[in-house]
């Protein structure tokens, strides 16, 4: 639309990229290189599972037990996970199987939290008018609790915990009473506006049973979201959860989540 667009990209680039910028770029690569490794490892784990799947071994839910790990320090709040989830699972607008929250904490302890459209469109800069000393993004999704209140409270056995450790909703049995939505302390469930049944994260069951990654994990560009299987020998996520200071959300609810957080700050609820 203007001359800027018509200009030769290469020359412009040479002009712009000063030495200082390049140095900064190098530092960034170093800092985030670790994440590239993390991602390729996740991919390697997946390849092993895919190999098994393609070798014609039928999926046995009794041989898997999944867990999820979120590294808060790596989340850049891009919302790629929310968009990928919505596309993969046909999530209706204004409802979320996963979302990203932004926390901004001031020196005096004022907490400003937001999640515009669940973080689906990313985040805009936000002026709180306060001296922000701590700010971070927190991805959220169903915690697939081992002691899940939603399954306990489902009157008809439509919500259940599968042998591989996932909380799922049988769309053909659900009566749409909404009790599970009330019971979930994490706000992970909603009543689907079209099916009128409870809907929630399935950890992309249709993908993971074929050896693929959940859409959100695959979409995460920084490795903030990781997916593991405690039954897989040498599983890295299992190892991190077993050996690192991880936290869970709302431990006072005693729901025993299978979604763990690294570097979670106490403001998060």
């Amino acid at each position: 639309m203007n001359e800027y667009e018509k200009e030769e990209p290469a020359s412009r680039r040479d002009f712009l990229c000063g030495a200082a910028q390049q140095a900064a770029g190098a530092a960034i690569i170093l800092a985030f290189g670790e994440q590239l490794v993390a991602f390729s490892e996740a991919a390697a784990g997946e390849t092993a599972a895919t190999a098994e799947a393609s070798a014609g071994v039928p999926y046995d839910p009794l041989k898997h037990r999944y867990l999820y790990l979120i590294d808060v320090a790596k989340c850049i709040g891009c919302g790629a996970c929310v968009r990928a989830c919505a596309l993969e699972n046909d999530v209706p607008d204004n409802h979320f199987r996963t979302w990203v929250e932004r926390y901004m904490v001031s020196r005096t302890g004022e907490v400003t939290t937001d999640s515009p459209n669940g973080g689906k469109d990313g985040f805009e800069p936000l002026l709180t008018g306060q001296d922000i000393t701590k700010a971070f993004f927190v991805p959220k999704l169903c915690n697939h609790c081992s002691q899940s209140p939603c399954v306990q409270l489902c009157p008809v056995g439509a919500s259940y915990r599968s042998p591989d450790g996932l909380i799922l909703v049988d769309e053909k049995r659900c009566i749409g009473c909404g009790y599970c939505v009330q019971a979930c302390p994490y706000g992970s469930r909603f009543i689907h506006p079209e099916t009128h049944t409870a809907s929630k994260c399935t950890l992309c069951y249709h993908r993971i049973t074929k050896g693929m990654l959940p859409a959100c994990v695959q979409a995460c560009p920084t490795g903030a979201r990781r997916f593991g299987d405690t039954q897989r020998p040498g599983d890295e996520v299992t190892e991190i959860v077993a050996s690192s200071p991880v936290r869970i959300l709302k431990p006072e609810m005693n729901t025993e989540p299978n979604c763990y957080y690294l570097g979670l700050s106490q403001e998060v609820r």
Binding site: A43, T50, N89, L168, Y205, H206, R207, K210, G211
Partner: peptide, 17 residues
Amino acid sequence: TSLGEFKEKPVIHGAVG
């Protein structure tokens, strides 16, 4: 059998690689 129904949902995003 509802577990099987979940497995049958269409895959939208391709596998890694």
